[in-house]
Amino acid sequence: MSLIAKGILQGMAVTAKNFIQSYYKKERLPTVEYPEEKSTVNQFTRNIPFLVYDGEDEIEGMRCTACKLCEKACPPQCIYIIKDTDENDKPIKRPKVFDIDSSVCMSCQLCVEVCPFESIRMDSEFELSNENRFEGLLINRDELLKSNEYYHEIHPIEAQETDDRIAAKIAEAETKKKAREEKARLAAEAKQAAAAMKAAEEAAAETETSATEQAQQSEAKAEAPEDNPETKNT
């Protein structure tokens, strides 16, 4: 009995403590009264994807190349992309239509993982309610496009990492390009030298070409298929 009574009194003390402290201790009353106050968003909040663009112009700075990898990766298939075309009806690397159905998106971030161009990123916007439950919930390209500065604002660490990665990529491309140019230059030089040498050699060796060597080569070619019968079947 005394054990039970003690347990009951201890329990009552706990609830009384919670009751009383909820009036003056913040951690005992963590409720945020939403429409009046908003403090729930921090830089680790992720809700729905958006498209990043660099610089001033939305269309020019768009990072997305309409590669449609995110469209394929999205598990509930809520991304819809149509490639843009230029005046001559040739497809160009930019989406004309980029829709995300916010009523379907499950905030899984797979599209972010898959994008090779650091274009699609998660937003922390959570007030997505709308009066029209069909078109209103379909977010189109122009609404999705948000500047890199905005990205820095909401997810500073991640945005910085992304920027660094892009810079590294560009730098790498630069060095590669330089290396390629160097190589090309060397190759061209070598070619020139070789051509000069060849011209000299050719003039000397033209007379030495024998008919017997040519015959041996053609024999070897005829034997090769018999060694490997499988190649025929395949």
Partner: peptide, 13 residues
Amino acid sequence: KGLARIQNRLGPN
């Protein structure tokens, strides 16, 4: 209200 406060909520307001 009382139950809400015991459970660290606000209750009807």
